[in-house]
Amino acid sequence: MIDIHSHILPGIDDGAKTMTDSLVMAQAAVKQGIHTIIATPHHQNGQYINEKQDIKLYVDQLNENLQEANIPLTVLVGQETRINGDMIEELQSGVIATLNNTKYVFVEFPSGEVPRYSEQMLFDIQVAGYTPIIVHPERNRQIAEHPSILFNFVQKGALTQVTAASLVGKFGKTIQKLSHQLVDHNLTHFIASDAHNTTTRGFVMQEAYQILKQEHGNSAFYMFMENAQLLIDGQYVHRNEPERIQKKKKIFGLF
């Protein structure tokens, strides 16, 4: 299994604090059946600045420690960048790390809103030769209230990634319901852990994939599995025609 979103690098954001923490997370990942993981530390989110060259050094150090500890996990370079007006410049100058040096790049929205310039920025990223992947859209309040926003982005070429814990229900029933709707309506293309630790924000990838198979069938299960591999190989991922989520309208205050 491949996990494309994690905060396993030590001491650089709100994920693992020490190398020991990173190794404990790595052991937990292996128990989940994960053999390859992309380290995606936060960048430009108002708290953390993690540039590509620094991330690569941390990834190399972690891989060395994993080998010494005989933990069968490979860590790849990535980054979780909060959407901002300098993204194109930072992509072109090598500040922003794509996922495993492919054309795929993570884009994070603030939790409460989708900035007004997002559509233009997602378009500009594609014009520059990259494919934006919107991370955990199911946890964005504005998208939850207006899922047509996400439909518009996906229809225009963006991809999305839901969190394993969201699909399982660890963020509550509302977020869980929306996560499954995104799968049903072809509005998401990847499942990843977004793991920060082994206690409150663990991997739960195995459980998420089991639920995916039970709720959405074998074809969805294999598509999401394959998409993670296609991503790290820099290949085109599977995507089906997106559909709008029809929200129930209130009639006289009732549903």
Rank of each mutant, 00 (worst) to 15 (best):
I2A: 03
A28P: 00
I88V: 04
P132C: 01
L187P: 08
Y130F: 12
S179I: 02
K247R: 09
F153V: 04
F109N: 08
N45I: 10
D3V: 00
I191N: 03
F224W: 12
T174C: 05
Y58M: 06
E207R: 04
E243S: 12
I8P: 07
T160L: 07
K250Q: 14
R141S: 12
L99K: 04
L91Y: 02
H42G: 06
F221H: 14
Y222K: 12
K249L: 08
L23H: 08
I71L: 07
Q246D: 09
K31N: 07
V30G: 11
N227P: 04
L159K: 02
N100T: 00
F190N: 10
F255E: 11
A220N: 14
N84D: 12
V105N: 03
F221R: 03
A97L: 02
N84T: 03
I4H: 08
M25C: 08
Q210A: 08
Q214K: 14
I232M: 04
F153P: 02
K156E: 15
R141A: 09
A192L: 03
K31W: 00
P147Q: 08
L212T: 05
I211H: 15
T200F: 03
K247F: 05
E119Y: 14
P10H: 08
L182D: 11
Q61R: 14
S118K: 02
S6L: 00
K56R: 06
S93V: 06
K156N: 15
L73W: 03
E90H: 11
Q44T: 13
S93E: 12
P132A: 09
H146A: 01
M87G: 12
Q92V: 10
T36D: 07
G217C: 13
H189A: 03
A192K: 09
A128N: 10
Q44H: 11
N65I: 00
L150E: 13
I34D: 07
P110Y: 01
R244T: 12
V75C: 08
N227V: 06
E64K: 12
D54F: 10
K56P: 00
N227F: 07
M1C: 06
